[in-house]
């Protein structure tokens, strides 16, 4: 039976991909399980958006749907060229809301120079879906082809482009009725400029945007793919204090929170400082940090070195994020 957890980007999602989709659709491009499929100099990607609430601090489902797609292309070293969208709304959905969402989509699409060239719109009976779903597909031109988990080797450094988890907090803050500080926003934004800048430096081997499942999901996926150990220095991970405090209150693991405008890059050790300094030139990259390294150990797992010097296994998220009493 399919459960919510199967769609959460965690271990269950991976299981379903490995057991159902991969065998059924078997082909060498899909098998790489990257954010976009890459073939002959182009990359193609698709994603469905069902975020609740549809308007949140720092964005809405429209902004998210275009951003997510262009970011999926960017982490595959591709510049978006064109976007296709499908919008499904529930009977009775307010026109003003739809207008707002569409204008956010248009804005981001212009910003990254990726026109929305085709689309589809459907209305379903009330209750069949929750307000609105958006499915976005993008096609991009690959400008940095030398990416892939197979290029990652021991000694490589792990970089994140900024604080992680702000998007989840902006979303979950509403669900848990917390009041966030003035100006706290989702990180939802295109990352293309930053990716372009660091690819100029070179030495980048693998990139991923830590969306659903957060750092924990992305890093575990990489560790399993390369069958090596990833060590994360807890002190260096740039979580914002609001994110950490929110997690402490409700019992969430900050490594499981999602970002929609950040990326993880695994880079050559020699180039890591230069790449970091490129990133920090951008306002959205000013908190970028080297957070860990790849280690030569034949165990596909992620270890966190805690502030107290202890070691902890970072397991992949196993489903929905749930608040805890203990």
């Amino acid at each position: 039976m399919i459960k919510l957890a199967h769609g959460s980007g965690g271990e269950k999602t991976r299981e379903l991909i490995e057991k159902l989709f991969l065998p059924a659709f078997k082909n060498p491009i899909l098998e790489k399980l990257e954010d976009s499929g890459r073939l002959n100099g182009i990359a193609i990607t698709i994603d469905g958006y069902t975020v609740k609430p549809i308007f949140f601090r720092g964005g809405d489902i429209g902004k998210l749907s275009i951003t997510g797609t262009v970011n999926d292309l960017a982490v595959c070293g591709a510049r978006p060229k064109a976007i296709a969208v499908s919008i499904i709304v529930e009977d009775g959905f307010p026109t003003e809301k739809l207008e707002k969402i569409v204008s956010s989509m248009a804005k981001i699409s212009r910003e990254v120079n990726a026109p929305i060239v085709t689309g589809d719109f459907k209305v379903v009976s009330k209750g069949e879906i929750d307000e609105i779903f958006i499915i976005t597909s993008g096609i991009g031109e690959i400008f940095y082809p030398s990416l892939g988990a197979d290029r990652v080797s021991a000694g490589d450094r792990i970089i994140v482009s900024g604080p992680i988890g702000d998007h989840s907090l902006a979303i979950m803050g509403e669900r848990y009725e917390v009041e966030l500080p003035q100006g706290f926003e989702s990180d939802c934004a295109p990352i293309l400029k930053l990716v372009e800048a660091i690819t100029q430096v070179g030495g980048i081997k693998w990139m991923r945007d830590p969306t659903r499942g957060g750092l924990a999901a992305a890093l575990n996926e990489l560790a399993k793919a390369i069958n090596k150990e990833i060590l994360i220095y807890e002190d260096s991970v740039p979580f914002r204090k609001e994110v950490l405090n929110f997690c402490e209150i409700f019992g969430f693991d900050p490594y499981h929170l999602a970002s929609e405008g950040r990326f993880i890059a695994v880079v050559d050790k020699e180039k890591s400082e230069k790449i970091l300094s490129e990133l920090t030139k951008f306002p959205e990259g000013k908190n970028a940090a080297i957070i860990g390294e790849v280690r030569e150990k034949s165990k596909g797992r992620v270890i966190v070195k805690t502030k107290f010097g202890g070691l902890r296994l970072l397991d992949p998220p196993t489903g929905e994020l749930l608040p805890r009493i203990c």
Partner: peptide, 21 residues
């Protein structure tokens, strides 16, 4: 219930399973 209980397995699955059903 509190989130902690959602994934605890009993003889006929978890509360999260019941939700999925």
């Amino acid at each position: 219930t509190y989130g902690d209980m959602m994934k605890v397995p009993g003889p006929n699955g978890t509360l999260a399973d019941a939700k999925a059903k």
